[in-house]
Design a protein around this nucleic acid. Structure first.
Length: 521
RNA sequence: GGCGACGUGGUGAAGUGGCUUAACACGGAGGUCUGCAAAACCUCUAUUCAGCGGUUCGAAUCCGCUCGUCGCCUCCA
């Protein structure tokens, strides 16, 4: 069974096995949609995708909710500059907050789709859950856990929640002792945090409440939306390491009095993606979108592969070099797999079921009412995956079974993807029949999510070829058949100039690979 | 100031008490194969885990100290 490192208890614990017919429930902190998500954000969003795939792999259904934060920042954050076409177009050209949020939400879905992230079942938007947030804040005030101030702000009184500090280690004593800087004048305790803030001058987004016009505190949305869509208690809560404090600490405090304890059983936090020794962040100027990778001839799945080479709980160094290495490794992996030949359509070694992320357009939009489950391509329902750890569908040999068990053990060990990836490399190298090696690798890909089954499709995944490229390829094939090597090499150079390398494979076919034309030779 | 994480080869990183005189990948070296170029396949590529002490029959792995790096405490994945 999958075990995960729980920040709250500082232990590695198994995911709770749900009642028969019930799903594992997971709430994932999602994007803030007033700017693009960068690859560091995407690494964090990959983590719940891996959890979900691992559980599906074990045959367990998962219900996943991922919030869309579309409120809270629009006054202070100038749509800061940049080579950011959408910011220029949408942000600075008098768009409404809603229009900006919609645009960036769509961009987020596009990024997630190219990363092969399985869509959540619901993407609730904060702005569509203001009534739930207000109801929660009112209950907390009525129960004596919150207080309203002269200025019209409502704060949660942390001293009323005895468990405060358990998640982050920032106990109240420590916080008070270590506090520095200004304290909002109307807080009773520096550690108190806002449930509701009075709307100031120039505030674009505000709602009426019993305390006057205002807007919700950041932490409130997750408490309210998790309760609405997953119930009081759910199994897994995911987020980035920066969410530990204050976001999740405060979420536990404000949900606690209502639901009788921490709302989630497991609190899982992903470590940052680092560039040049710093966390990736817009302000550091080291911000990169996943869709920008294509400009450098790198496909998004190479970034996914890169993420799989480190544990989610460890910071990962991101650089042009590490990304290029991942891209090369993924290409080589595909070549080795492809060399095994395609799977039979039927029989014991037929390709295992694929967990596909689909296209951005297949994703549900965030509206709370009328949410539809995510659609997979061809309208298929969420795949049912049997627990192959217990009884592999294919008749594995003892050596094959050993490799399979090694893979499953790695996954279950707090998502040890580096070991899992090492195992599939070992599988490809193993002294086993091609059918068995291919089956094991494709089976593993249900969790890895690298879309390895596509190696037998006619074109490499990320390439979009013009008709004339096809014509050139056909001509080269003819030239080679006629042993006109001069002509064949000439065409190769032309393709290289277009950024593609024709590679003649052992089976007589030719594959096109994307190359970086600027690197020449 | 408080809380926390990390420091392993040219690079990205596994390993957290013996099965490891340190996985896997990239890079590099050599070879097989092949119109060519690749790919694929094979071999090699850290006596060593920031430093110094300690615990132990045994430590990269546990403890202490030192040095270094980073993160959270304000919006932040």
């Amino acid at each position: 069974m999958l075990q995960l490192a729980d920040t709250l208890t500082r232990t590695v614990r198994p995911v709770r096995i749900p009642e028969p017919g019930q799903p594992v429930t997971m709430y994932s902190c999602g994007p803030t949609v007033y700017r693009y998500a960068h690859v560091g954000n995407l690494r964090t969003f990959l983590m719940p995708d891996l959890i979900r795939r691992a559980l599906l792999y074990h045959g367990m259904a998962v219900r996943q909710v991922q919030n869309i934060t579309d409120v809270g920042h629009l006054r202070d954050e100038r749509f800061d500059r940049g080579d950011d076409p959408m910011l220029v177009a949408a942000g600075l050209e008098d768009k409404t907050p809603g229009q900006i949020a919609d645009a960036y939400e769509a961009a987020f879905h596009a990024d997630a789709a190219v990363m092969n992230l399985l869509p959540a079942h619901v993407y609730p938007r904060a702005t569509e859950h203001i009534p739930e947030m207000l109801a929660l804040a009112e209950r907390l005030e009525d129960l004596g856990h919150a207080y309203r101030t002269e200025a019209g702000n409502v704060y949660f009184a942390v001293s009323t929640w005895p468990g405060y500090g358990r998640l982050s280690g920032n106990t109240l004593d420590a916080l008070r002792a270590g506090h520095r800087g200004e304290v909002e004048g109307d807080k009773r305790d520096p550690a108190d945090f806002a449930l509701w803030k009075a709307a100031g001058e120039g505030r674009l987004l505000k709602w009426p409440s019993r305390w006057g016009d205002g807007f919700p505190g950041w932490h409130l949305e997750c408490s309210a939306m998790a309760m609405r869509h997953l119930g009081d208690r759910f199994d897994i809560h995911t987020g980035g390491e920066d969410n530990v404090f204050p976001h999740h600490e405060d979420e536990i405090a404000q949900s606690g009095p209502i639901v009788g304890g921490p709302p989630a059983d497991l609190w899982i936090h992903g470590a940052f993606l680092m560039t040049s020794g710093r966390k990736m962040a817009k302000s550091a100027g080291n911000f990169q979108r996943v869709t920008e990778l294509a400009d450098d001839g790198i496909e998004a799945l190479a970034f996914r592969y890169l993420c799989l080479t480190a544990r989610y709980s460890r910071r990962l160094d991101y650089s042009e070099e590490s990304l290029a290495a991942a891209a090369t490794a993924l290409t080589a992996l595909r070549s080795r797999l492809r060399a095994l030949g395609p799977a039979a359509d039927n029989g014991p070694w037929a390709a295992p079921a694929v967990l596909a992320a689909g296209r951005a357009a297949d994703r549900p939009t965030g509206s709370a009412a009328g949410v539809r489950g995510h659609a997979l391509p061809d309208g298929q329902a969420e795949p049912v995956v049997v627990d192959r750890a217990g009884s592999p569908a294919a008749p594995l040999s003892p050596a094959g079974r050993e490799l399979h068990e090694r893979f499953v053990a790695a996954i279950d060990d707090d998502l040890d993807m580096p070991t899992a990836v090492a195992t599939i490399h070992a599988t490809l190298r193993a002294d086993l029949p091609a059918d068995e090696r291919r089956w094991l690798v494709l089976d593993a890909d249900a969790v890895l999510g690298l879309d390895l089954h596509r190696v037998w499709q006619p074109q490499p995944p990320a390439a979009v070829f013009e008709p004339r490229v096809d014509a050139l390829l056909a001509e080269r094939a003819q030239a080679r058949a006629g042993r006109d090597w001069e002509r064949a090499d000439e065409i190769r150079e032309r393709l290289r100039a277009l950024g593609m390398e024709p590679v003649d494979l052992a089976d007589g076919t030719t594959e096109l690979r994307l190359i970086d034309p600027s690197k020449g030779g």
